[in-house]
């Protein structure tokens, strides 16, 4: 059951293509004739050097390299100082921290659609896969006339009660 995602930037990966739609602020280094409409607030025909615009990443990647770069990309907002603290400066660390919550969410099978909206695309896919697997396992555990189950007393005991999802996310 391979995870159908690209493992490194991949030309054919839909996820990667969609990710390049994200905008990043970039500063123009040259005057660009006839492209004033990209910056409607100025109302001029030509785009002047020094203008800062948010351009999609796929465009920036093309025009920031080469012999004569047209724009100078800036760090996207989500990687600015203030956000770095949130990300702990590392995608890997963030993923690891959120992983426990993700696992708990998937295990405590609650059909609450709002939970999924707080996950990013990658996490949502992991969530969906593991949620399905967990549902199957639970179905297996309770199927066939005689169930193997914990005693009523144990189920009712406070410690064993289902964890509140709201607390997990916050």
């Amino acid at each position: 059951m391979p995870l159908p995602s690209a493992y490194c930037p991949n030309y054919y990966s839909i996820d990667d293509i969609l990710a390049t739609q994200e905008r990043s602020p970039s500063k123009f280094l040259l005057n660009v004739p006839k492209m004033g409409k990209l910056n409607p607030s100025e109302g001029e025909i030509d785009l002047k050097a020094g203008t800062t615009l948010e351009l999609p990443t796929w465009l920036v990647l093309e025009i920031c390299t080469g012999r004569q770069p047209i724009v100078m990309p800036d760090l996207p907002k989500i990687y600015k100082e203030s956000y770095r603290e949130i990300l702990k400066a590392d995608a890997c660390a963030t993923f690891k921290t959120r992983f426990r919550q993700l696992m708990d969410l998937a295990d405590n099978s609650i059909s609450d659609p709002s939970v999924q909206q707080r996950l990013d695309t990658l996490e949502r896919r992991l969530f969906r896969d593991s949620y399905n697997a967990r549902t199957k396992l639970n179905a297996w555990l309770i199927e066939s006339g005689a169930t193997i189950e914990a005693a009523n007393m144990v189920v009712n005991h406070k410690k064993r009660k289902r964890i509140d999802v709201e607390d997990l996310i916050n």
Partner: peptide, 15 residues
């Protein structure tokens, strides 16, 4: 499965 192998895959991928 599949959450652990997939998560490890992702960590590997980021690294």
């Amino acid at each position: 499965r599949p959450i652990l192998p997939h998560a490890l895959d992702q960590i590997y991928r980021i690294k």
